[in-house]
Nucleic acid binder design. Structure first.
Lengths: 147, 147
DNA sequence: CTGAATTGCGCAATTG
DNA sequence: CCAATTGCGCAATTCA
């Protein structure tokens, strides 16, 4: 029942993996290094970031580590958010359930009240009928149920 | 808005990572190899599975690979289940919302009916009052609201 | 103890 | 380019 019993070191650095060839294995051979796609082309390649992406990017590169760390942070954030939302949904379900019970109770009450009033009405009707024609006790015993 | 555009290779094998020191880095130095904790001790170590666990377990070991594969499968299964449940919860929310609307509509209807009947009653009451004492039109105009 | 199920985490590909 | 998502595998734990 423990939820938070994992805490490697927060600052990563303990993973020390060496993804030889991370993913790209039998799918899309990433060009190991692209000399210079646009030598005298358009606007002169800004720094040289495009190269890094295609050149497997050193896993020791500071650039790389910074990116990874930022992404890890983003991932954590995203997952937290996701879990929060899920929990909120569960709460919502409970609220709706309660609301439902309240409504059903109210319906029950209203239905009961309605029944009482209708009965009273029938009695009155009978009284009136009796006072007009003191011998009719059969055609007015029907009741209505609303769905 | 595309959801499923990731498909490395399903059969793994493309990861080819080499977690030098997987997790245990600054937490609990796993003894690289335990000679024989209980040499002439208790009951003689059964087979040799205990060793494997403490001995970092070769990442090339078939034992290891099989375990990993099974776990990966279990993980996938578990996550699928988890997502399914989340989705079901969302569906549940919608069902409850609809149910709520139905109930509220019904309440509205019942309330209206009740109002009509009550009005009829008041009229009758007035009629009766008029026929008995033709000059009392103030003490019976109150209405009741149920909460 | 054993194997399946969960869970936190980091990686990489995508998406926005 | 950057942050947010998402599928995935690893390892530690928890369950059964």
């Amino acid at each position: 029942m423990s939820k938070t019993l994992q805490q490697k070191s927060t600052t990563d650095q303990n993973v020390s993996v060496i993804h030889i060839q991370p993913h790209t294995s039998g799918l899309q051979q990433v060009p190991q290094l692209i000399p210079d796609c646009s030598i005298g082309g358009g606007k002169a390649s800004p720094p040289s970031k495009q190269a890094r992406k295609n050149a497997v990017m050193d896993r020791n590169s500071e650039e790389y580590r910074q990116r990874r760390e930022r992404n890890n942070l983003a991932v954590k954030k995203s997952r937290l958010k996701s879990k929060q939302k899920a929990q909120d949904t569960l709460v919502r379900v409970n609220q709706l359930k309660e609301e439902n019970e309240r409504l059903e109770a109210k319906i029950k009450l209203l239905t009961k009240e309605l029944g009482v009033l209708k009965d009273l009405f029938l009695e009155h009707a009978h009284s009136l009928a009796d006072s007009v024609q003191p011998h009719s006790t059969e055609s007015s015993t029907a009741k209505q149920e609303n769905t």
